[in-house]
Amino acid sequence: MSRVWKFGSDVDTDQIVPGRYAPFMLKEGQDVKDYAFIEARPDFARNARPGDVIVAGKNFGCGSSREYAPEALRRRQIGGIIAVSYARIFFRNAINLGIPVIEAPDVVDALEDGMEIEVKWASGQLKSDSGQLFELPPMPAFATEIIAAGGLTAFVRKYGRFPGEK
């Protein structure tokens, strides 16, 4: 089971990882993954487990192009993100790092913070703790291919091309 960590709208990259905790600001032995939501949601920073799911409102990840925001979530091994919508740069950074990013306003409405759910990201099936079933809308084929390969660098390394290219 995965815990739902629910957020509101316009969560900017400074809330995900404040600039002071950028990898290049950290000391030897510190890891950016320990600073995910360190100020905005300290209980996430302490307790999030691998596979947990971030659920958010509109425009998740707005602000700077800093990739260490989704990178911190990747290292934290979150299962994926379900939001009403994403900021564009965050959306592509997450895909490039192999993190599923789903747009599903209805599902966001139905999920509460702290719920335990089960998500099959590949098939798009989501089951809540009360047994309620949801169908997640698919991501663009392009993104699905990148995520299946484990990210853009892994994809290009493996196939020597971009998805959709001959």
Binding site: S65, I89, N93, N96, L152, T153, V156, P163
Partner: peptide
């Protein structure tokens, strides 16, 4: 348009990028 580090790294290494 602005992109993240992985995008820029892949563009430098391959000469290309993806755009919707």
């Amino acid at each position: 348009t602005g992109m993240g580090s992985t995008d820029i790294a892949v563009a430098m290494g391959t000469g290309k990028t993806w755009v919707r």
